[in-house]
Amino acid sequence: MQALDKALAQVGRVVLGKEEQLKLALACMLARGHLLIEDLPGMGKTTLAHALARVFQLDYRRVQFTSDMLPADILGVSVFDPETRQFSLREGPVFTQLLLADEINRATPKTQSALLEAMEERQVTLDGSTRPLPEPFFVVATQNPVDQAGTFVLPESQLDRFLMRISLGYPSPEVELDLLAGGDLREQVRELKAVINGEGLVKLGRMVETIRATRELLDYVQRLLEATREDDRFVAGLSPRAGLGLLRAARAWALIGGRDYVLPEDVQAVWPAVAEHRLTARQGGSVAAMTQSLLQSVPVVRRA
């Protein structure tokens, strides 16, 4: 998959030292899922989203969420046109191919859920008329870590709508040095070359569906899901939807790896990004560590 490698290389030029996360983001897009990036401000979330849009030649809009934002501000409103004497829909920023929803947890729950519903259904219903969103349609939402004041935490049910959650984290010292030495990032992003267009991306997304997963692999995925349900450290286990997402993400990962079949490694690679944000710990503690420990404890191949 030369195109994908190229795309990765392109984005890697501006988001330095985060190959793993880039691959995950890419896989998320290929699996037609939405991405949630959780990080402190200034970690390059915006840059990543912007770069992805450039590389795939996607319509790109960025919305900074605030607490006084209303659903109409994102979806659009029906306005009365005095000339035509008719109501017409003024599309909101959601009608784009790649939407960067910055600091989504600053918005009120109502606004959040309006966006999330649109994400799920890939269409917007306003005043009784339904409009499909463009194809492809991705949302990259960013969120400040929960502890920050003045935020509305996304409820679990909404988090399920994001296929993956990643966090970029601080760059390594070397990368940071490069970063400091480099020029204006925005400028660089603008200089990125497109690799595929939106249509190509849709085709790739279809290819993901054809990646083979054997019975044994499906078994493994099922065992992982089962393990989250049986593990009483979590409030609740993963939903079947999460399971489908996991499999789709693993397929996309396999595609990026240049294979037409899924290996357990693919599942393991996307597992934290897919599972962590959907699970809540019962008694505090690091969900990340618990999710990771499941990978250790769930046998890949069935035992006697």
């Binding site: 607490s67 009120t108 729950p109 003045g150 509305f152 935490v153 409820p155």
Partner: peptide, 8 residues
């Protein structure tokens, strides 16, 4: 205390 908003 300063009222900040509502949450579910």
């Amino acid at each position: 205390e300063e009222f900040q908003g509502l949450r579910e």
